[in-house]
Simulated assay, not measured.
Amino acid sequence: MNNRLYVGNLAYSTTNESLTHAFGEFGAVSSAKLVVDRETNRSKGFAFVEMETEADAQAAINGLDGKSMDGRAIKVNIARPPERREGGFGAPRSGGYRNNDRY
């Protein structure tokens, strides 16, 4: 098991401090980071919270998943590792035009 948690369905008014406080009731919190939009600096409605131990993480899941926080029923589970993303600048692509195929 992992001690990094995904927290979803958060209210836009939720702060890193309120996350730390809520999760701190279930053990030591290493970090709490809201994910924010780069352009507007507004919360995207989810965060990642890292607990000190796996036991603390499981206690937080059991205690907070589905509970109300800032008026919203939050979703708490183990964070999955990020998936490899394809596309974007510099990434290999298949299909489309290539210089030697045009003529």
Rank of each mutant, 00 (worst) to 15 (best):
G95Y: 03
I61M: 07
Y6S: 01
L64I: 11
S30M: 14
R93G: 12
M1H: 03
T15P: 07
G88R: 02
A28H: 11
D37F: 04
G24K: 06
E17S: 15
A57C: 07
R38K: 12
E83H: 07
A57E: 04
R38N: 12
V49A: 01
A73F: 06
T40M: 06
Y12W: 15
G45R: 04
N41D: 13
N16E: 13
A91K: 12
D56L: 03
V76N: 00
V7G: 03
G8Q: 07
S13F: 06
R38E: 07
R38W: 01
R93W: 00
Y103K: 09
T53E: 11
G27N: 08
L19A: 08
A55L: 13
F23D: 05
N100I: 09
K67L: 09
V29E: 05
R93I: 12
A79D: 00
E54L: 06
G88Y: 03
R42I: 14
M69Q: 14
D65G: 04
A60P: 03
H21P: 03
S18I: 15
R72M: 13
P92A: 06
E54F: 09
R80V: 07
D56A: 15
P92G: 01
R93T: 14
G45V: 10
G90T: 05
L19T: 09
L34K: 00
F46I: 06
T15H: 03
V35E: 06
T53I: 07
G45K: 08
K33P: 02
R80T: 08
V7I: 09
E50V: 10
R93S: 14
G96H: 05
P81G: 00
A55R: 13
D65A: 08
E86K: 11
S13Q: 15
R85I: 12
F48C: 01
G96F: 02
R85Y: 03
S94V: 13
L34T: 04
T40Y: 08
G8F: 05
R84K: 10
G24S: 09
L19Q: 03
S13K: 14
Y97N: 05
Q58P: 00
F23E: 01
R93A: 13
R42P: 04
K75I: 12
F23Y: 06
A59P: 00
M51C: 11
A60F: 01
T53A: 10
